[in-house]
Nucleic acid binder design. Structure first.
Lengths: 214, 214
DNA sequence: GTCTATAGCATGATAGAC
DNA sequence: GTCTATCATGCTATAGAC
């Protein structure tokens, strides 16, 4: 086994770190290549542009991430009770909290990166997200519709997005960092996952509205 | 009534628009002053720096925003049932959906701006949010603790943050723009508010966990 | 594939005339 | 208070030697 990472790999690793920690727009190719110990021009040689580099960074992680999500969902649907909202959401959130092989100990980093991508300028974000998440999201919304037959399909999709928002807020680091003054909160990954699951599942199971109030 | 806005006011108005629509880092002072029809140097004359301008933009809106929130909460606590989780959350979310005088028809803009601020680089954000939101957030967490006496205080604060995340995802525009493919969703302000309230309230009322699972 | 050097442009900030 | 002109610095991207 070679311990020698290629220039390409070193760029990808450092890009992942800096994009996640400092932000994407805030990370210059100069700082990136300096940290990685490679030449400035090598980014353009290997990837073509900063934007294409970002896409490569995402691509590398999104694949196993989404595969794990779908594997969990398949397993659930093959099991006895596919209508368990908690279990569906847990399958969706899980890869960010429990590492698969290959992802290493970079969960915190990946969560931040995902949050960063969602905070990108509209044009880039739309494109990136559609490419890397839309299929999986559709599968999960379909599963949730099956589990919540009395709730209008539109509302299932809307509530799924609200759950996504809660997830992203956790991913952005607001559980380690932000504290509502006077009420500090701290928890480990598994505990946070379960908090997120029970919150979002309860939200999804809320009674259907009867139309706009007032 | 004078229709002549001062240079200072024109800068504030345009900054609010462009920061919200294009992003803060993405908005140059050159583009800003060009749009406002004022001189580039006037930003530094009136505000001192771009960062100080952002703070002034927030300051102007945060005050009535937070006052409305607290007024609603006071009213609720004076009423018969201060333990209504839905009502507490509605009081918190309301100013973003129902305009007060002075805020005009800029609700969509303000929601986006709030989302942008939360997506800022850590240092700036911490400072800004602590200054403009932490007191109000504390009051609402306290109210929620009163309404949910069986839930540990830490968990109330954590769930309030999750609710905040859902709110911010809406504010970022993900209800008008993003669509889970195949499940389009559209709704007006009041309807979105009620969706958010019922989702978040159900999440907060979810049964307490018995400790980390597994 | 990797390097140096630089083009080409944008930015926030400021000095100083009016 | 408002203007022009400019400083100093940053950036992505690329040309071309090795």
């Amino acid at each position: 086994m070679s311990t020698t990472r290629t220039t390409r790999e070193r760029i990808l690793d450092v890009a992942e770190e800096l994009f996640a920690e400092r932000g994407i727009g805030e990370t210059s190719l100069r700082a990136l290549t300096r940290t990685a110990g490679v030449n400035l021009a090598s980014v353009h040689y290997h990837f073509g542009s900063k934007e294409a580099l970002l896409d490569a960074v995402i691509e590398r992680r999104a694949r196993p991430f989404n595969e794990l999500r779908l594997k969990q969902l398949d397993r659930l649907e093959a099991s006895g009770n596919p209508a368990d909202v908690d279990a569906i959401l847990r399958a969706f959130f899980l890869p960010a909290f429990r590492s698969q092989e290959g992802l290493g100990t970079r969960r915190t980093l990946l969560r931040r990166l995902i949050a960063r991508i969602h905070a990108q300028p509209a044009e880039q974000r739309e494109e990136l997200l559609r490419r890397h998440t839309s299929e999986v999201n559709s599968r999960f919304v379909t599963a949730l519709r099956g589990a919540l037959p009395t709730l209008p399909g539109d509302e299932v999709a809307d509530r799924f997005r609200l759950a996504l928002g809660a997830m992203l807020h956790v991913f952005a680091g607001n559980f380690e960092l932000d504290e509502v003054p006077g009420y500090p909160g701290r928890a480990l990954d598994e505990a946070i996952l379960e908090q997120l699951v029970s919150f979002a599942a309860a939200g999804l199971r809320a009674p259907a509205r009867r139309g706009p109030v007032r």
